[in-house]
Design a protein around this nucleic acid. Structure first.
Length: 706
RNA sequence: GCACCCUUAGCUCAGUUGGUAGAGCAGCGCUUUUACACAGCGAAGGUCGGGGGUUCAAAUCCCUCAGGGUGCACCA
């Protein structure tokens, strides 16, 4: 053995064992206290902060979570090494409606139902369920290497968070931006709650289109069962066919007695569609409601909250919508009031975004709404003048487009699992406070839309307005999350952050895409194509998973992830491990003052250029490029050239050449570990710990770029 | 209907401010010579969706067509 006498730790004689190494490395980091910005070494004045998008505490982490952990941990580790006072604040979301759905399903499996439980009982069980999940998730985040400050962890139901949410609600109410309105909402008869416009989806369906005889008119509708709620028929003001009817009343025999309806003219009616005549049912169609507002039409509720016809429908009362549709159509036909039926009519229906079988019923109900126009304007300005910067420009465009079509936001939910709305009613009086105002007041039983509280997450978690953390870390530096919650969350945070604090909640928005399977299919349990991040992390190492998630993944774009790709970076880990072994065996005794020969000086210059390049890439959020460049350099330059060339130098070269080369290898290895650490934190820290003469943790080593 | 994105090697994707193309996997070939068999090395592979334009120069900028995807939207 030519290398006798060199001391290389025995672990390098075996392939890198990620599974055995990673938990111990994480423990070292956590024990060091450096996750907490207050404990970081040196004099750090400039802050860098990321608020972690709180995972929903209703399940385990999926590969999408692994992606955000990887991206955010990378940015945090990079800035920590650059000398910033870095805070990455973790949390968990009670995720109101979604968690309630998950828990209801669980109850269903046990043959139970929340409708047979006391409110409190259901709430407490769900709370226990989320707390267990939350604990489990924290372990998973650690496994993924998240260097977040656990001492500052927050939960959306923490009393301090709830207090902030209440204060915001009260302020909005006092400013006239929150109002109690009787307006159309998206009602789920299945889950017995309203949903915001964002929590709905349009799906295409084929339904019969019925042509009904309304006195002198024929009009088309998919929903004959709502006819009992008609309060007018409408035509287009420019439609010559019906001009003489406008303002008059039509009278005809209905199913439950004679009907009298006013004929109104409104631009809403498209003369080209159907017969150009529309029945107006304000209580069960948001458009009809708007028409009714313009024409002062009465609103008659004919469908109740269970989706059954009301007593206004005579003998049809009590029938469910779909049954009623059939019966009403039959009876109309029998009475000769049905002109024809188009059986192949394709249209869109509004459904629950979490359950396409849950067709939503538009209903007019008293609910809490937020006036969006003033808030949207604040947000628009902030993005327009660059106070908030989108890393990918496409989402800036989508953001502006979205702001154009905003309706007021329904923030009250008729569900148990959530933050109770601090409102009290007595007759027509309303008071906003948490404690009872006294005798005769009744508390609102509704809870907040979960996005109303998460929309306040950045300033709520930092303890607005008095906490030192708020002063140090707000506005936060980056918001990194999936583009799928741009509207749900990012928009609302910008609006509510600006409204409440006067400042944007974050400066840069980095939106990542969906992680799909190798064939670009969405991962789903039913398809069986799910990659469980913790499983593959145990198989190939967390570092390999992180690299696989980073390389070839650009902001805002979906990525395909195959297990083979992760495996590929396991090979890279092993390559790096063996590079380290070679360097330690052959250059472990390097003299750090040795003079560089010309060739080695060239290598060093090349490496310094790479360092600057990679630094720029990270600064400009091209982390995928930085990762690829490092991969390429280490494999194709360091291993293939530097190491191979070194072998003859160490065998037959001059002492000057050998000394120069030893110093070069040690220098480039140690700086490479620094550059690679934000990407592959575990293996780099582990190698670092074995390098002679290097003290301390790599996670707080100084970044090598000038 | 409006808006946005995508189309590059067999597959999945990169390509920063315009300078005649890169990675991983698959496929092909070679190698068990002490950094690496839990592999390694090498070669091959593309008229950058079609057409037009700007430019000394276009995968990159502009126009247009085609295909795919997503978001928003009040057609009963």
């Amino acid at each position: 053995m030519p290398d006798q006498g060199k001391t290389v730790p025995e672990k390098f004689l075996k392939p890198y064992d990620a599974v055995a190494t990673e938990p111990a490395v994480y423990k070292k980091w956590e024990d060091s206290g450096y996750f907490n910005p207050d404990n970081l070494p040196g004099d750090r004045t400039e802050a860098f902060s990321i608020i972690m998008p709180p995972p929903n505490a209703n399940g385990s982490l999926h590969v999408g979570h692994a992606l955000f952990v990887t991206l955010q941990d990378l940015l945090i580790r990079y800035k920590r090494m650059r000398g910033f006072k870095t805070l990455w604040l973790p949390g968990a979301d009670h995720a109101g409606f979604e968690t309630q759905l998950v828990y209801e399903k669980k109850l269903e499996k046990e043959g139970r139902s929340r409708f047979k439980m006391e409110r409190e009982e259901f709430y407490n069980e769900t709370l226990k369920f989320t707390q267990e999940n939350k604990h489990y998730m924290e372990g998973q985040l650690r496994q993924l290497g998240a260097s977040c400050d656990w001492s500052r962890e927050k939960f959306t139901l923490d009393p301090a968070i709830i207090k902030t949410v209440y204060d915001t609600f009260k302020k909005l109410y006092e400013d006239g931006l929150v109002y109690r309105g009787v307006r159309p909402v998206n009602w789920s008869t299945k889950y017995q709650t309203s949903l915001s416009d964002l929590e709905t989806k349009m799906v295409e369906r084929k339904d019969p289109l019925y042509y009904l005889k309304y006195g002198p008119f024929v009009l088309a509708t998919v929903r004959p069962e709502t006819k009992f709620g008609d309060t007018a028929v409408a035509v287009n003001p420019n439609d010559a066919r019906y001009k003489e009817w406008v303002g008059k009343e039509i009278e005809f025999e209905g199913l439950i007695g004679p009907i009298k309806l006013k004929v109104i003219a409104d631009e809403y009616v498209d003369p080209e569609f159907g017969t150009g005549v529309v029945k107006i049912t304000p209580a069960h169609d948001p458009n009809d409601f708007e028409v009714a507002q313009r024409h002062n039409l009465p609103i008659v509720e004919v469908i109740d909250k269970y989706g059954k016809l009301t007593e206004k429908c005579g003998k049809y009362a009590g029938l469910k919508v779909m049954e009623a549709r059939k019966v009403v159509a039959e009876d109309l036909a029998a009475k000769g009031l049905l002109e024809k039926v188009d059986e192949n009519y394709t249209h869109t229906v509004l459904v629950n975004y979490k359950n396409e079988n849950d067709i939503l019923e538009p209903r007019v109900m008293p609910q809490w709404f937020i006036k969006m126009a003033p808030l949207a304007e604040m947000a628009r300005k902030a993005v327009e003048d660059g106070r908030v910067n989108f890393v990918s420009d496409q989402y800036r465009k989508i953001f502006f487009h979205w702001l154009e079509n905003l309706r007021d936001w329904n923030i009250s939910r008729q569900i148990v699992w959530g933050i109770p709305i601090p409102a009290w009613f007595k007759g027509n009086e309303v008071k906003i406070q948490d404690e009872t105002p006294g005798e005769g007041w009744e508390r609102d039983t509704d809870t907040f839309d979960t996005w109303f509280s998460s929309g306040q997450w950045p300033f709520a978690t930092l303890g607005y307005p008095d906490s030192p953390d708020f002063k140090t870390f707000y506005p936060t530096s980056v918001m990194e999350t999936g583009y799928d919650i741009l509207m749900f969350w990012v928009m609302r945070m910008i609006m509510l952050g600006l409204y409440r604090t006067g400042e944007v909640p974050f400066r840069d928005v980095y939106l990542h895409g969906l992680v799909r399977d190798a064939n670009r299919q969405k991962m789903s349990k039913s398809k069986g194509n799910v990659i469980n991040p913790l499983d593959v992390a145990e198989k190939y190492g967390t570092d390999s998973l992180r690299m696989a998630l980073l390389i070839g993944n650009t902001p805002g774009q979906d990525m395909a992830l195959a297990e083979d790709k992760i495996k590929g970076y396991k090979l890279f880990s092993n390559k790096l491990w063996n590079i380290a072994r070679f360097v330690l065996e052959n250059a472990g005794d390097a003299d750090t003052d040795a003079a560089y020969v010309a060739k080695d000086q060239e290598y060093l210059t090349q490496f310094e250029a790479l360092t600057a390049d990679i630094t720029k890439d990270i600064e400009e959020y091209r982390v995928y490029m930085a990762a690829e460049k490092l991969y390429h350099y280490l494999w194709d330059v360091f291993a293939a050239n530097l190491l191979e060339e070194s072998k003859p130098i160490f065998k037959t070269g001059s002492p000057e050449e050998a000394a120069s080369r030893k110093r070069l290898l040690m220098t480039i290895l140690s700086d490479s570990l620094k550059l690679l650490h934000p990407f592959m934190p575990f293996i780099t820290e582990e190698i670092w710990s074995s390098m002679q003469g290097i003290d301390g943790l790599l996670m707080v080593a100084e970044w090598p770029a000038k």
